[in-house]
């Protein structure tokens, strides 16, 4: 069970990397959504939308592919979580639908009420999506009641415990910070100066949330730290996370916005890595009956499938990374509004 790199561990890491890709990329556009209503005029809101315009759709594909990979590699987790958290996931789906169409529809009519409606939809849906994803992760870490067959045995209201809600709020704060730094990169002039102020506030908000979540995890969720205690070298990870987070205001202060954004990406990645290491080798903690927990062995597909999927990943991931990088390169630089803009 503790073999350093078996197939199941590798897939745990790969699924993790897909969700990390999602959190880093869609994280900033969810964050832009969270800040959207703070932009005052139509022109400013258009700049916000067009800052993520060419990339948000591709960013969401990371979630879809992560979901597909989870289904393929760990069908038991996919089945348990998505059916168990049914109402929450339905709300998440509606949030994602509304976001997608709000971005697309908003620009199609100039009427102020039309635009206000889609502005509101975009922002509320973005915050809701971030919150729901965070609450789901918080529950998976805290532990949910699972029966002997691995089926969810709790209720929707039972998912709204303080710790998962705290993780949810932390996720919103993290994405708002991440989004504000992304916006600094894409904007210029007056608006950029204002967003700089927001970035400072969101950084403070996030650090407060981060400290609370870390304390709560250390105090109340001992199983999330067990793996670290077994392998003390892993304590480097939370240290690196703290350094990445601390580096964000430092880089912003020095005027190196792009470095700040990279730091913010690193912080998102590191937080998810912490989550993964804390969970490992479990994937869903069962509480109160810990023996019913789903882990990377009892929830996995066959070794044959994991090997086939590895071939698919080895062929596909370099392609994905190469065109993701190309798209970001082509659309680098400040946003300019033109005829094809939202």
């Amino acid at each position: 069970m503790t073999a350093p790199l078996d197939l199941n561990t590798l897939w745990f890491a790969l699924v993790g990397v897909l969700f990390m890709g999602y959190a880093i990329l869609d994280g900033f556009d969810l964050g832009v959504g969270a800040l959207h209503l703070f932009a005052r005029e139509d022109q400013e809101r258009r700049l916000f939308l067009n800052a993520i315009g060419p990339v948000w759709d591709g960013n969401e594909v990371w979630l879809v592919t992560g979901g597909g990979a989870l289904f393929a590699a760990f069908p038991e987790v996919y089945a348990t979580i998505f059916s168990g958290f049914y109402p929450a996931f339905m709300l998440l789906l509606f949030g994602l639908i509304f976001r997608a169409v709000a971005i697309e529809f908003r620009s199609k009519q100039p009427h102020p009420a039309w635009r206000a409606f889609w502005d509101g939809s975009f922002s509320v849906a973005s915050v809701a999506a971030a919150l729901l994803v965070g609450v789901a992760l918080g529950n998976i870490a805290w532990g949910v009641p699972l029966d002997a067959a691995g089926e969810f045995a709790g209720s929707f209201l039972g998912l709204l415990k303080p710790y998962p809600l705290l993780v949810g709020v932390t996720t919103v704060a993290l994405f708002a910070m991440h989004g504000s730094i992304y916006l600094i990169l894409k904007l210029e002039g007056d608006l950029q100066a204002r967003v700089r102020g927001w970035a400072q506030n969101t950084i403070i908000l996030f650090i407060l949330c981060y400290v609370c979540t870390t304390m709560a995890t250390l105090l109340y969720v001992p199983h999330m730290t067990a793996y670290f205690k077994e392998h003390p070298v892993l304590f480097l990870m939370p240290l690196l996370t703290m350094l990445a987070i601390a580096n964000i205001p430092r880089e912003l202060h020095r005027g190196r916005d792009f470095h700040a954004f990279l730091s913010s990406c690193a912080a998102v990645a590191a937080l998810l890595a912490l989550f993964g290491l804390g969970m490992y080798p479990n994937m869903v903690f069962s509480s109160p009956l810990a023996e019913n927990s789903l882990n990377i062995y009892n929830a996995a597909s066959s070794a044959k499938t994991l090997k086939i999927m590895l071939v698919i990943a080895v062929l596909g991931v370099p392609l994905v990374l190469s065109y993701t990088a190309s798209i970001y390169w082509i659309f680098r630089g400040k946003v300019k509004l033109d005829a094809s803009s939202y």
Binding site: G68, F71, A72, P75, M309, G316, L319
Partner: peptide, 15 residues
């Protein structure tokens, strides 16, 4: 079906 069906869905995402 996850062992069989999931791979196709994941391949759809990737490719």
């Amino acid at each position: 079906v996850g062992d069989v069906f999931g791979s196709a869905l994941a391949a759809e995402g990737i490719f």
